[in-house]
Simulated scan of single mutants.
Amino acid sequence: MSEVVIKAEPRNEFGKGAARKIRRENRVPAVLYGHGTDPQHLSLPGHELLLALRTPNVLIRLQGAADELALPKGVQRDPIKGFLEHVDLLLVKRGEKVTVDIPVTVVGEVADGILDQLLVSISVESEATHIPTGVEVDIEGMSVGTQVTAGDLKLPKGTTLVAEPETLVLHVAAAPTAEPAAAEGEAAEAAEGEAAEAAE
C-alpha cells in the first residue's frame, strides 16, 4: 500500500467556532490518537485529505506538527454538502497488525439466478503498511444455490480473517417467476369480483 504524505498543522483552538474558522480556510480539524499517547489536535489541508480518503484504509504519513503514520478511523461529513467536518486518525507503526474492513468486489456473471451480495466489506487483520485494497470474488458461471462464505475468500498473503468463517458473503438465488405474480393478480381480481357481487 502506498503512503500519502499530508502536512499537518497544530490546532490550539477548540469548539464549533474554531472548527468553522478552520473549515473556512479549506482545512479539516483532526485528532491523532493511539499507542497510549495523548491525543494530538491537528489541522489538515481539506483538498489533499479528501483525495486521500478516496482510497479505503489509506495510510497517511503526517509531516509537520506530527511526523507519524496514521489510518483514518472516523470521518465526519456534512450530511447535505458532503464536505469533511472532522477526521479521527489512528497512530500506527511499521510491522504493527491492525484490524480493518476491506471491500469485497465481485467479477464475472452468474450462470443463472440472481446474485445476492450480503456483505460489501469484510473484517481482516493485516500489517499496517500492507493493508490490501480489497478482495475479489469470481462469480463466473455460478448457479442457483451456490454460496460464498467469509472462509472461502482468497485473502492476500499476510492477511488473516477476523470475521467468522461461516459468515455468508453472497449467494445465488432463484430468479422470481411470472407465475406467482400472475396467480396473485388473478386472486385479486376474483376478490374484487366477489366484493362487487356482494355490494349488489
Rank of each mutant, 00 (worst) to 15 (best):
G113H: 03
V98S: 09
T99N: 07
E164D: 13
V148R: 01
H130P: 11
D101V: 05
T159Y: 00
E179G: 14
P72V: 00
G145N: 06
T177V: 15
A173C: 03
V106D: 08
L91C: 04
T149W: 02
I122Q: 02
A182V: 15
Q117L: 01
G134K: 07
I80T: 10
V107L: 09
R77G: 13
P176N: 09
V137C: 09
K157S: 14
L69Q: 07
I139K: 02
M142F: 06
V169K: 05
H171Y: 02
G95S: 11
V104Y: 11
L119V: 09
I102W: 07
E166C: 03
H171I: 08
L89M: 09
L161T: 03
E136C: 14
V162G: 06
L115T: 00
R94S: 07
E179R: 15
A175Q: 10
A183R: 15
E179T: 15
E125Q: 12
G185W: 11
Q117C: 02
V144N: 03
K81N: 11
D88R: 10
L62E: 04
A150K: 06
D112A: 04
L69N: 00
D116L: 01
L89Q: 04
F83H: 13
A183P: 14
L89H: 09
V106G: 04
K81H: 10
V148A: 00
L71R: 06
D88W: 12
K73I: 11
E109H: 02
S123V: 13
L84G: 10
G145T: 04
P165D: 05
V75G: 12
L155G: 12
P156E: 01
G95R: 11
P156L: 08
I114C: 06
I114H: 01
G145E: 03
V172H: 00
D152P: 09
K93M: 10
V98R: 10
V106E: 08
G95N: 04
V110W: 00
A183W: 14
A182Q: 14
P72H: 07
I80M: 03
A65N: 13
L155H: 09
G158I: 00
G141H: 01
V172F: 05
V107Y: 09
A70Q: 10
P103E: 02
G74T: 14
A163F: 00
V135K: 05
I139S: 02
V98T: 11
L119I: 02
S123R: 12
D67P: 14
V87K: 07
S143L: 08
V144S: 04
G108S: 07
L59S: 03
S121F: 04
L89P: 15
I122D: 10
T159F: 03
E85R: 05
K73N: 13
A163P: 15
E127H: 01
V137Y: 07
L118S: 01
S143E: 12
T167R: 12
V144G: 00
V162A: 08
E179L: 15
A128P: 14
A181L: 14
A175K: 05
T149H: 06
L118R: 01
P72L: 07
G74E: 15
L62C: 10
T129V: 05
V98K: 02
V172N: 03
L153Q: 03
T149K: 05
G185S: 11
E136N: 14
T99P: 13
G95I: 12
